[in-house]
């Protein structure tokens, strides 16, 4: 685990981190419900349990940095600052959604926030991250590219090809592996000969650290350090975020592959409960603060659902728009 995680926590900063994590948790819980109501369809992958990774990482990254994410990206998108209304509307398939209803849950994009998806092929985003970073390098920018992917991606060839390329070309990529221990239902040790993921990155001569992904402060600190190192010295860095998914892989997963007791044990060290307990013990927040954050999140989510539900559909006549770039005539 990374050293030096004891950053002095202030009330203001701690509440900000908590607020972001609670927005995501509340959003995901509402999505679960909305799926049952058939407002959201298709594949839906929820981020419950992993909130500390998105929130800690996005706090440490800058607006000019590029982000590449996965199909479990609602948390990354929210923490990046993409308006909840646009994300919810996309999940509803509406015209006001990020991708005008063409992407859905797995394909949230926001070019203005340099958020490049929402990639639903495992490891398929890694080569793109290398390319975004190559552009940053060729244009002599101080921005970096942060690339999220799961432990499942580590088994794919694109993971290995991209780590190697990023290393030999010294590309400014921060690889952020969200190791939640399961690739869908296949446990890490059943899929990987070497389960120490951070060690794999070292084999490509990339500086690599494992981080307690359930602790938002540890994540923020580690990403800060890694991003600084990339900005100052160039070359990629790799962080393995050790985390856990509380809910099923998707809405079609009866979770036959893991014990309820395992999930319960991880819930006890969940990122929201951990930070809340810590802040209360330090006298940095009260139960009232918690309620207020909860209410704020609920109001924002209610408004987003209202916005999405009342938004228009993209006209079917516009189906074929955007397959090719629309040239100014």
């Amino acid at each position: 685990m990374s050293a030096g995680t004891e950053v002095a926590l202030t009330r203001e900063h701690g509440l900000e981190l908590l607020r972001e994590m609670m927005r995501i948790r509340g959003f995901e819980d509402r999505c679960y419900q909305l799926y049952g109501e058939a407002k959201i369809r298709g594949f839906l992958h929820l981020y419950n349990g992993e909130e500390a990774v998105a929130v800690g990482a996005m706090r440490a990254l800058r607006p000019g940095d590029a982000i590449v994410s996965t199909y479990r990206e609602h948390g990354h998108a929210l923490a990046r600052g993409i308006p909840m209304n646009k994300i919810m509307a996309e999940l509803f398939g509406r015209q006001t959604g990020c991708s005008r209803g063409r992407g859905g849950s797995m394909h949230i994009f926001d070019a203005s926030r340099r958020f490049y998806g929402g990639n639903a092929i495992v490891a398929g985003g890694l080569p793109i991250a290398a390319g975004l970073a190559l552009a940053q390098q060729l244009q002599r920018q101080s921005d970096i590219t942060a690339c999220f992917f799961g432990d499942g991606a580590v088994a794919e060839g694109e993971f290995h090809e991209t780590l190697n390329l990023a290393s030999i070309w010294k590309l400014p990529v921060l690889f952020l592996c969200e190791n939640n221990l399961y690739a869908m239902g296949t446990a890490l040790e059943r899929a990987q000969a070497e389960t120490d993921i951070a060690a794999k990155a070292r084999a490509y001569r990339i500086e690599s650290t494992a981080v307690d992904g359930m602790d938002v402060s540890s994540v923020e600190h580690a990403v800060n350090n890694a991003a600084d190192k990339i900005r100052n010295q160039g070359g990629p860095a790799f962080l393995e975020m050790r985390t856990y998914r509380f809910r099923a892989h998707s809405m079609f997963d009866p979770q036959l592959y893991r014990e309820k007791s395992e999930i319960e044990a991880w819930r006890k060290k969940g990122p929201i409960v951990t930070l809340t307990t810590r802040m209360k013990a330090l006298g940095l927040m009260t139960e009232e603060d918690y309620r207020r954050l909860e209410d704020d999140a609920a109001s924002e989510i209610d408004a987003a659902v209202q916005f999405a539900d009342s938004s228009p559909w993209e006209p079917a006549a516009d189906l074929e728009r955007f397959v090719y770039a629309e040239r100014a005539s």
Binding site: P127, A135, E161, N164, L165
Partner: peptide, 17 residues
Amino acid sequence: SESAFVGAGIGAALAGL
């Protein structure tokens, strides 16, 4: 690494190159 460098071309194009 065909997948990595073709994807890198796509990423660089997304970034305006």
